[in-house]
């Protein structure tokens, strides 16, 4: 297997607690390819932000390592750009000056005019012009501020862009337009992106792959959901893609009912259940397509029907866990099982 561009190997974060220690997450392993857009979704407290901070080099893991292009990530660096949820713009600097701050740090040898031109280019790219670039962050709307933060991150041309719920604080309309901008820029620059989000639709619109985290403590990455929807995608038309709802239902189903059952705390009774290695790959859209083109194979439907109650009613975490572990190895079978609930949604 080729090494991934970004490789996360059995990452864990533990905090000392009153009794022993508290494991926020453990055995987190996954890879990101160059030019890939990966989203991570999970409930609050599962340690998504900590993972992102570890990738950024702002936080150190208790266990495991992060390799980028074969080199271990240690401490923050300019080759990894970050956009925080609260923008983190320097309020005493203008929008332009905030971007120039990053550019000047990235290329210390550049002349002031060159830094300025480069920064303006990226500000225009995110749609900040006509004097807005001279304003202080306090004089800009939330959406504008987040654009500046995105421009600052893109302007340093990082190898990896980390987005920590960048649109969480924005209203839905603004969020939509900035998502469009982000899609456009990513298409142009082939930027490798790792993004945290709470928004299922946002993840489907933007990502190539979505990592699903179980609930904390002892959270893990349960699945890696492939978003096999053709690019270029558009916010308006993506919902009409036949793959959209299977993916969406799969994600929502995970977040609503399965994320808890799969969590490590529920799993701790079974020692050595060992979820080593990368999370299993799921492709609900492909499964749905395959299923409908084959004329609803009885196997898939049967599985869906028989498995559905155990999810929906949720007899107990142990049931769900044993179900998932028993299926962890059988990849093909697993897909159809996972697409079970989705098939129903599509057929409705």
């Amino acid at each position: 297997m080729n090494p991934h561009f970004l490789e996360i190997k059995s990452l864990a974060k533990r905090f000392p607690a009153k009794q022993g220690e508290l494991t926020v997450f453990e055995d987190v392993s996954f890879g990101i390819e160059k030019g890939e857009f990966v989203c991570i979704i999970g409930h609050s407290g599962c340690g998504k932000s900590t993972i992102l901070n570890v990738l950024a080099g702002l936080d150190a893991p208790s266990d495991g390592e992060v390799l980028m292009a074969g080199k271990e990530v240690r401490g923050p660096a300019l080759e990894r750009g970050i956009v925080f949820q609260n923008y983190s713009l320097l309020p005493w600097r203008s929008a332009l000056s905030n971007v120039m701050f990053g550019v000047a740090a990235r290329w210390p040898g550049w002349s002031k005019t060159r830094v300025r031109e480069h920064s303006l280019k990226y500000l225009h790219m995110v749609g900040l012009k006509d004097g807005a670039e001279q304003r202080k962050p306090a004089q800009l709307s939330g959406g504008m501020r987040q654009r500046v933060a995105i421009a600052r991150a893109f302007a340093i041309e990082p190898k990896l862009l980390l987005l920590d719920e960048p649109f969480g604080a924005l209203d839905a309309l603004t969020r939509g337009t900035i998502q469009d901008e982000l899609l456009k820029i990513c298409a142009e620059t082939h930027q490798t992106v790792f993004m945290i989000t709470h928004d299922v639709d946002e993840a489907i619109l933007l990502a190539d792959r979505i990592l699903l985290m179980t609930n904390g403590p002892q959270a893990r990455i349960a699945e890696s959901v492939r978003v096999s929807i053709e690019r270029p995608r558009e916010r308006g038309s993506i919902v009409h893609d036949p793959g959209y709802y299977p993916i969406r239902t799969h994600l929502v189903d995970f977040l609503v009912s399965r994320s808890h059952g799969l969590s490590g705390s529920a799993n701790s009774g079974a020692p050595g259940s060992g979820h080593q290695g990368p999370p299993r790959i799921v492709d609900p859209a492909e499964a749905a397509r395959g299923a409908s083109s084959l004329g609803s194979p009885s196997n898939a439907i049967g599985n869906a029907v028989s498995n559905r109650p155990s999810h929906a009613i949720g007899k107990g975490p142990s049931n769900a866990v044993s179900h998932s572990t028993s299926n962890a190895n059988g990849a093909t079978d697993d897909r159809s099982v996972e697409s079970g609930p989705l098939l129903r949604a599509v057929n409705l």
Binding site: L58, P76, L78, R80, S88, L90, F101, A105
Partner: peptide
């Protein structure tokens, strides 16, 4: 802390 993190991520 965010602003200090901005400095850190920009390798100042």
């Amino acid at each position: 802390k965010d602003w200090v993190n901005v400095a850190r991520t920009h390798e100042l």
